[in-house]
Amino acid sequence: MSHKKELIKFQIDGLTVEAEKGQMLLPAALEYGFEIPHLCYHEAVSPYGACRLCLVEVTKRGRTMMTTSCNYPVDAGLDVATNTENVQRARQMILELLLARAPHSEKIRAMARDAGVEETRFRVIEDADDCILCGLCERVCREVVGANALTFVNRGDRREVAPPFGDPIACIACGACVYVCPTDCIKMKEEGDERTIVRWKRTLKMQPCQSCGKPFAPVFQLNWIIERAQLPKDFYALCPVCRKTKKG
């Protein structure tokens, strides 16, 4: 099997661009500086196509259609339009829906403002927790961290992301999901030598640095990494700061 990359050419808003065949359209366009709003895409994980915000119009062999760009593989000769009236209208509608679901999210409010949406015509969910079910937390936990602590649960209007049986036993409190969540609805607290991932109700003791004494990461997480990566047992005796200074 050859791993040589095949570069192809296509058009975005009239500009000829180059990308690797089969690469997803969204990252290719972002690389060229086109601004396509997106919420459920993150370069670290596989695309999921859930939020539908990244809609564009693609013309292929004379046929035009609206498609999400984060999970659309590019091909030679495509003609992509990122900001047509159709696209704008669809985007505004999606942002209104998202506003109703995640009324407190600064990011979504800003995106809506940018798209010219001031308010939503949909009923704002009472005491919304701002989760838009983008699934980024679940994907990062599974694909990047490998902890498999989260999953989609139920379906229909009871659908949510949660640990199995509501028990976060597999969560190592690494905070990766906190970092990728686009609506900031996964909060992390550090108090004394404990770290809590509030949304998943996971609290873990943190390991104090052998040199400066400051707690720096959950013991459970460190042991987990040591075991998986087969590192020496004392690999994480020092916090990252002291480790650097010790190495000089």
Binding site: R142, N148, L150, T151, F152, V153, P164, F165
Partner: peptide, 10 residues
């Protein structure tokens, strides 16, 4: 992973 089983189960 239990997550995968739980996903189907729910």
């Amino acid at each position: 992973p239990l997550t995968q089983i739980y996903y189907l189960a729910t």
